[in-house]
Design a binder for these strands. Structure first.
Length: 338
DNA sequence: AAAACGGGGAC
DNA sequence: GTCCCAGTTTT
């Protein structure tokens, strides 16, 4: 599940850490969702973590007390779709079903010189059908892994190594001399920009984090209080007043004007970050977040590893620290006042 | 059928 | 900047 839409190199370290912490199905099922999310922190698509956790509980609680061994049963698990069910069923249990990831879809569309738009579900269904007829009864897992590996190593999105490809004589796209034209995909619209202002509030060696609500981006993850700033930038004084009022918190905004971008698939986040010192604890957390909804809870932490956070939250803290160090050393005299 | 859902690396 | 990654679920 970690591998869904995520490169192998990005996953390896997470996978190893995850397995050390949860070596068995039961250990995963017994853990809290927070604990599972913490190990997923930074990997993205956090729904996968919750689904894996749910799936583990379903499996551990079932009569079998083990992982289902057929495609038909596997695909019933939350977070397990056609690809994942096919990969597990074929590789682990030798069932002759296909496993179409992005690599395999690229290989197949090239072999067939398929002009259909791969962004469309209908095209993917068609490929799934075709792939089902190609899977061998013997060693289907090896076949599936070979197809994925072919896509990952030779039949790459750009500059495919057709000369070394074992399927070169069967490939229509290569015949046509334009393998890079496949797969055909409708261009995505560009991601809208979202402007936010985050405030890193420090008190007694701890940072103030708020928990995002259910639904939407970064569901149930913790982050620094973040305001939306749809129009113009907020001045430090405005930021101080707003978080003061909304959190019932006396805070002194110290640094200012750290800017950073965070590119997501369908949003382009533009953050301004302020560092602040709290004088008294928050009374409430009635803070609308940047986007729909309101925060659910607050918490002071000495370390971000105490709670599940998104990648951007670590990035923000890093920037604030770098900014403070730079200022302290006076390397950049004019960081203020911008 | 289309949109939502993260983040990083390659070019 | 753009594209894509060992995709799935929701609207």
């Amino acid at each position: 599940m970690m591998l869904q839409q995520t490169r192998v190199e990005s996953v390896v370290a997470y996978f190893q850490r995850f397995l050390r912490r949860f070596p068995t199905l039961d250990s995963l099922a017994a853990a809290s969702q927070e604990e599972v999310l913490k190990l997923w922190s930074g990997l993205g698509y956090y729904r996968r973590a919750r689904q894996l956790h749910q799936a583990s509980r379903r499996m551990a609680g079932g009569r079998e007390k083990q992982i289902p061994s057929t495609y038909k049963e596997l695909i019933k698990l939350p977070g397990v779709g056609r690809y994942t069910a096919g990969a597990i069923a074929s590789i682990a249990f030798g069932e002759p079903v296909p496993a179409l990831d992005g690599n395999v879809m690229r290989v197949l569309t090239r072999l067939l010189a398929l002009p259909d738009d791969l962004a469309r579900q209908a095209t993917r269904n068609k490929l799934q059908q075709i792939a089902a007829t190609l899977v061998p009864e013997k060693n289907p897992g090896d076949y599936n892994q070979a197809m994925m590996e072919l896509g990952a190593t030779l039949c790459t999105p750009r500059h495919p190594a057709c000369g070394s490809c074992p399927l070169r004589r069967l490939c229509r796209a290569r015949d046509a001399g334009n393998p890079e034209k496949f797969p055909v995909k409708a261009a995505r619209g560009k991601a809208p920009r979202v402007k936010c202002t985050s405030v890193v509030v420090r008190q007694n060696g701890k940072w103030l984090l708020l928990r995002r609500p259910a639904g939407g981006l970064w569901e149930h993850l913790w982050e620094f209080p973040t305001l939306s700033r749809s129009k113009q930038d907020l001045s430090p004084a405005e930021v101080q007043r707003r978080i003061g009022r909304m959190l019932g918190l006396d805070a002194q905004v110290k640094s200012q004007d750290i800017r950073l971008r965070h590119q997501l698939t369908h949003r382009r986040m533009e953050y301004r970050v302020f560092a602040a010192t709290a004088i008294r604890r928050p009374k409430k957390i009635s803070l609308p977040l940047c986007g729909p909804g309101r925060y659910e809870a607050y918490r002071w932490v000495a370390d971000l590893d105490e709670v599940p956070v998104a990648g951007i939250t670590r990035k923000i803290l890093e920037e604030v620290r770098a900014n403070l160090i730079t200022r302290r050393h006076g390397k950049i005299a004019k960081l203020d006042g911008v």
